[in-house]
Amino acid sequence: MAYLKLDHIDKVFSRGGRDSEVLRDVTLSVERGEYISIIGHSGCGKSTLLNIVAGLTPVTRGAVLLEEREVNAPGPDRAVVFQNHSLLPWLSAYDNVRLGVDKAFGASRSRAERHDWTMHNLDLVQMAHAKDKRPSEISGGMKQRIGIARALAMEPKVLLLDEPFGALDALTRAHLQDSVMALHQKLGNTVLMITHDVDEAVLLSDRIVMMTNGPAAHIGEVLDVALPRLRRRLELATSPVYLKCRQRVLEFLYERHRYVEAA
């Protein structure tokens, strides 16, 4: 039985008496420790899918099962790293992480343990030196690191990343991708990541889930990325497996499911 299972999920938004079908019959099984990327054109409902798994958006039909139990409300077992970091600007980096820690472990761990755990997670993303900085005082990449630390610190069963590197410049993005890859290697989290970057998907994922265009988007194809871990960016550039995977995703996105501009 799969660790995380999306079971025949349909999502219909009703607005002003008109129904728009966003997702139709999305079914996916994720094993423990797997790194899954969901890729698709803008508006194909991939963020909706992530919000459904996070419990922020209710499903219309179907269910999300985590360890064979249905989940339909948000919770710390499915921590989200949001695209625009979503740090609370009035709290320091430390307090942003601590907020999640206090809620997740307030009952089970002592104050000192929670402090140590917060610092440990800031260390994991190499941000312990900026613990007293407010979000407005640090760069975009650093904010995203804090966001990742906040999510990791809740010890989620599944880590949900919603285009986590989308708003970053290319160099910072590469740096952060390497960090996430190293963290995944070290901690063995189950990760579900939304992206629209083909290279990022191939570099990081065990499997790439390709979504067709909306409305009524569904999973068009699932690609296994048979590249050994730990992957190195430079070596991959010439790896035939990498190039082939990349080719497959590009074909899917730009030949078979070309993005049609909304008229």
Partner: peptide, 21 residues
Amino acid sequence: QDYRNVAAVVRLNQIEFFWKI
């Protein structure tokens, strides 16, 4: 909405939401 999402994910209750968000 981002802050509301954060509050939902870390599961702040009504009183915590009032004071912290």
